[in-house]
Computed example of a mutant assay.
Amino acid sequence: MNLRRAPSRMMNDDPLWLAQTAFAALADLAFACALGTLLLNAWLAREQTFAQPGWRRAARGCSIATIALVSCNFACLWLQSAAMSGAPVLEAGASLWLVATGTHAGIGWSVALAGSVPLLLAASGAPLSMSRIGSAALAALIVAAGKSAIGHAADAGAFSVAEGVQTLHLLATAAWGGIVIAGAFVLPALDTSVARAVLIRTVARMSKAASAAVALVILTGLFNAWRGVGGSLAALTASAWGHALIAKLALVAAALAFGALNRWSALPRLQRSASTMDAHTVINVMRIEAVMMAGVFAAAAVLSHSVPGSALAG
């Protein structure tokens, strides 16, 4: 069996490439939803009984998201084994252990899978304690570190600055997207007159946390993008990787626009009026932003599985 480091590909008609990209996107989305629902779980657990429907929805969503994360990370490791061994997908299990322990990409997926398991354990059950929050934070860091070792940042070497920046980028993006997507799922459970004050406080917390995550996403994203184009903007138009980056940036800009609309317009109106109409506006704008963020994760998966513009430029 000839194991090799499977190169990033741009063969959009290759079923294995498509499967790897799809499961990587689903893993990123599940990771984000796990972080977002964990945060909402922690915030709503401290609220009054009016918030219990929202807390239960957040806890249920967190369990589903972390189960999906474990499953998708295992699927990604299995597909990586098929890509590296050249075996059919259904027969890739024969080389799974060798790929998982003897190749850089396999180790990266193994680390991500290993981190997702304690994240699942921390997310299940009763309201989060401080120890479980700490365990979840450490598990999230392990997942992000494993993912950063799989993509283009790994070309700079293990434990490099590029990998460190990519780890922060993945964590910040997951936190931002997770807060938005989880909010779109959980907040309708708080859309009642008796829980209106809880809804307003929760959206305000979400807005502050998302703003901090966005700042980190932008800083680390600029570093990654400049490294990816190799200092030449020509790579944006001359490669499929560049086209995917443009699509991702457009989706990020759209998500930022809807987030700003909520933070600076819809939320202040809700805080002043506490009306049902303004509550619906906040939730509906967040739902649109959530769709944009799902697109961001899909574009990011395409980027990570395509040849970067800097490599194509020479």
Results as ranks from 00 to 15, higher is better:
Arg5Phe: 04
Pro7Trp: 02
Met10Pro: 00
Met10Asp: 15
Asp13Cys: 03
Asp14Pro: 08
Asp14Lys: 06
Trp17Glu: 06
Ala22Pro: 01
Phe23Trp: 14
Ala25Glu: 05
Ala25Ser: 14
Ala25Ile: 05
Ala27Asp: 09
Ala32Asn: 03
Cys33Ala: 12
Cys33Asp: 08
Leu35Arg: 11
Gly36Tyr: 10
Leu40Ser: 07
Ala42Val: 11
Ala45Trp: 01
Glu47Ile: 02
Gln48Ile: 03
Thr49Trp: 06
Phe50Ser: 14
Gly54Ser: 14
Trp55Cys: 05
Ala58Arg: 08
Ala59Met: 14
Arg60Ser: 15
Gly61Leu: 05
Ala65Met: 08
Ile67Pro: 00
Ile67Phe: 09
Ala68Ile: 05
Ala68Gly: 11
Phe74His: 06
Cys76Gly: 07
Leu77Asp: 06
Trp78Ser: 01
Ala83Cys: 01
Ala83Glu: 00
Ala83Asn: 00
Ser85Val: 01
Pro88Cys: 01
Leu90Phe: 15
Leu90Val: 13
Glu91Thr: 01
Ala100Tyr: 00
His104Glu: 10
Gly106Val: 00
Gly106Tyr: 00
Gly108Ala: 06
Gly108Arg: 02
Ser110Pro: 03
Ala112His: 07
Pro118Gln: 10
Ala126Tyr: 12
Arg132Val: 10
Gly134Ala: 11
Ser135Cys: 12
Ala136Lys: 09
Ala137Lys: 09
Leu138Val: 13
Ala139Asn: 14
Ile142Met: 10
Lys147Trp: 09
Ser148Gln: 07
His152Trp: 03
His152Asn: 11
Ala156Phe: 12
Ser160Ile: 03
Ser160Glu: 07
Val161His: 12
Ala162Gln: 12
Val165Phe: 11
Leu170Gln: 04
Leu171Lys: 04
Ile179Lys: 02
Ile181Arg: 13
Phe185Pro: 00
Leu187Met: 15
Leu190Phe: 11
Ser193Tyr: 02
Val194Trp: 09
Arg196Asn: 03
Ile200Leu: 10
Arg201Asp: 07
Thr202Asp: 02
Val203Pro: 05
Met206Gln: 10
Lys208Leu: 07
Ala212Leu: 14
Ala213Glu: 12
Thr220Asp: 04
Leu222Ile: 14
Asn224Met: 13
Gly228Ile: 07
Leu236Ile: 13
Ala238Phe: 03
Trp241Ile: 05
Trp241Thr: 04
Ala254Thr: 15
Ala260Gln: 10
Asn262Arg: 13
Pro268Gly: 15
Arg269Asn: 08
Arg272Gln: 13
Ser273Trp: 05
Ala274Tyr: 07
Ser275Asp: 08
Asp278Phe: 05
Arg287His: 03
Ala294His: 01
Val296Tyr: 08
Leu303Pro: 03
His305Met: 08
His305Gly: 04
Ser310Thr: 08
Leu312Val: 04
